[in-house]
Design a protein around this nucleic acid. Structure first.
Lengths: 250, 250
DNA sequence: GAGTGGTCTAGACCACCCT
DNA sequence: GGGTGGTCTAGACCACTCT
């Protein structure tokens, strides 16, 4: 690539908007990661190479790369290179599964029985996932166990547009988010969860094998993709004897 | 040239330390903030001044300052300067009070009735706060209200060594953490909270004015100071009809 | 030894806030 | 106008990983 191209590259970045260069660079890198360029697990070119290509200094490139690493989109390893973060079941549990046992160890749910169905989204589902009037969704209900006993009973709503044919002919994996990334190129970026306490009704009592009226923790979670689209609504009720939901306060 | 300055700057700070320069600089700044040098709300000297004083470059100083700003110890304002973060009641609510109403607005608890007592720490209290065998603690029990109705019933355990004479002759403020900072120089840095669901027993039912057996959210929280000492153990039970505890997932 | 990210420096210009 | 933090660049050396 010639020097003129470099300047044009830099100018192209600057002319579009007035945000800092590193923020624009970050945007460019995010696009490359999303659209079948750099895939999860890939080693991306080194700092100097991308910087030269985009016509910015290595320092600016570093700032963009560090910011993506802070958001867990990239993983940097000294002496080896920069990789596109890959979701593994262990990563997913570590980031998004906040249950701990009495000794402070993270709980690893053993398995799950799942049922799956598709249909038109209800108005509530459309609101939660910002879907259009005739959008379809996939609904998964499952029970996750811990030490062999039912622990979580949850319903997961997914826009069909993001996950066409999910579950067709195959069983639903225990950790969904790594499957989303591998099978559909949808990477979970962030989300929010609303927690309340409820008394077990007939449905929860039957699903979890407990008495009606037992106090349960209810989680209402909406997850967003890296591109900031709402890709999952999950509603879970959890039996919490011997376990706790852990929150870091900062 | 750069190499010699580099080593000298490092030598001036480190002696035994092999951590990065900016990390050592950060430590030095944190000490100055703790020990009656720079107080909450103070404007601290500009980057160049501190950098020159400590014998490091402005870039290294900036990295240390930015890291402290990220941890909310400092607040940087373009065109004005860098300030030591001051806890206000609003800040405290924003950072550490995670309850929201059905419309998604943060709940502001109205007031509280508090009782206060001091005594020797129980073994459980010593374990939670890593206290010595004969340590004393201050115990606060209070009820916080929302829209006039009891909302949270909580017990707060504080090491007497950190907060001597707390509550003597004065009432306990609604938001404690800003009081800790102003009156005792103890700044809350971070903490962790364990959430479970419980059924209301006689004590909770009486305190919150509800029926026994109602599902409540229980929070078990330990907070650490900027110097990483455990300075509070708080146990709360919350009535959650019309409200929810919100967690950001990243 | 070659290549990578991590640290550190030095100096430039810009955007913002004050008086 | 003068001072502050924010951005950007250029170049050096260090620490780590692989072959």
């Amino acid at each position: 690539m010639t020097e003129r191209d470099n300047r044009q590259g830099a100018a192209a970045l600057k002319r579009v908007d007035s945000r800092p260069l590193y923020a624009q660079v970050r945007e460019v890198l995010l696009e490359r990661i999303g659209t079948s360029g750099w895939m999860p697990g890939d080693l991306i070119p080194n700092e100097f190479a991308i910087a030269r290509e985009l016509g910015v200094s290595q320092g600016t490139m570093r700032k963009a790369l560090d910011s993506l690493a802070a958001d867990r989109v990239l993983v940097r390893r000294q002496g080896r290179g920069t990789y596109v973060a890959r979701h593994t079941p262990a990563d997913v549990l570590f980031r998004f599964f906040n249950f701990f046992d009495a000794d402070g160890n993270r709980i690893e749910p053993d398995s799950c029985r799942a049922t799956l169905a598709a249909g038109r989204a209800t108005s509530q589902e459309r609101a939660k996932l910002t879907l259009g009037p005739r959008a379809k969704v996939i609904r998964i209900s499952r029970i996750r166990t811990w030490n062999g006993a039912p622990f979580i009973f949850e319903t997961i709503i997914l826009p069909e547009a993001f996950f066409p044919g999910l579950g067709k002919g195959r069983s639903v994996p225990n950790t969904l988010y790594d499957h989303f990334q591998k099978a559909y190129g949808v990477t979970i970026g962030r989300g929010e969860e609303l927690l309340t306490a409820i008394a077990a009704g007939p449905a929860e009592a039957a699903a979890l094998g407990i008495a009606e009226g037992m106090a349960l923790l209810k989680l209402d979670r909406v997850m967003h993709s890296l591109q900031n689209q709402r890709v999952e609504w999950r509603s879970s009720v959890c039996r919490l004897d011997g376990a706790a939901y852990r929150v870091e306060l900062r």
